[in-house]
């Protein structure tokens, strides 16, 4: 299954008041195209989606905050996961869509295939985590979504995905517009 299919199938599991932070590149474009708008669509700040999610989760403790990030962004911001492992806001959920490449820059390999995500997440002190090596059926994916989003603790789901066939167009909203629309909703 490809990243865009995973994000599209996430739609029915997300409530209207869930706040989503999506990492720069294809992930935020897919979140823009396939999930309820407006959300936080990052244009740059590679490595920071989890930190932004942490800040948002601390500011809005009554709301669910979902960070959707690619593996390149996750690995760049890896040290921020130690902070999340320490403070553990219960409303923060993270999905890592791992295609093992930098897709928008030409498909260069990341080092993600070296990482044992289950051991890593356990080592970070995150108690609720899962990893899907391959998505054999939609029901398996849906079950993983439910476990993640129903968790009463900080939770992380790592999913190995196939390479997307094409890169989507850039998000038409200007960054300031993204901020204003998101804050109006929040």
């Amino acid at each position: 299954m490809r990243s865009e299919e995973v994000i599209a199938s996430l739609k029915e599991f997300i409530s209207e008041d869930t706040l989503i932070v999506s990492s720069n590149g294809n992930v935020s474009r897919q979140a823009y195209n396939f999930l309820l708008q407006p959300q936080v669509y990052l244009r740059g700040s590679m490595g920071l989606p989890m930190s932004i999610g942490l800040g948002l989760a601390l500011a809005q403790p009554e709301k669910q905050v979902l960070v959707i990030t690619g593996d390149g962004n996750f690995l760049m911001g890896l040290s921020s996961m130690t902070t999340i492992g320490n403070y553990k806001p219960s409303n923060l959920k993270i999905i890592i869509l791992d295609n093992a490449i930098y897709a928008t820059t030409g498909g260069q390999e990341t080092v993600s295939s070296t990482v044992d995500y289950l051991k890593l997440l356990e080592g970070l002190g995150i108690q609720h985590y899962g990893s899907l090596n391959s998505i054999t059926s939609p029901s398996k994916l849906h079950e993983a979504f439910e476990i993640l989003l129903d968790s009463k603790q900080t939770a992380v789901l790592h999913i190995n995905v196939e390479e997307d066939i094409e890169n989507l167009e850039n998000i038409p909203w200007q960054p300031k517009e993204i901020k204003n629309k998101f804050m109006k909703k929040t």
Binding site: L48, M50, I52, G55, L58, A59, Q60, S79, S80, T83
Partner: peptide, 22 residues
């Protein structure tokens, strides 16, 4: 106070907090 591991991470946390209206 949230002890960040890096200064850029701290900027991310502060920006997320602001987007959450605080």
């Amino acid at each position: 106070y949230i002890a960040a591991t890096r200064e850029d991470e701290a900027v991310g946390i502060a920006c997320g907090y602001y987007l959450g209206k605080k």
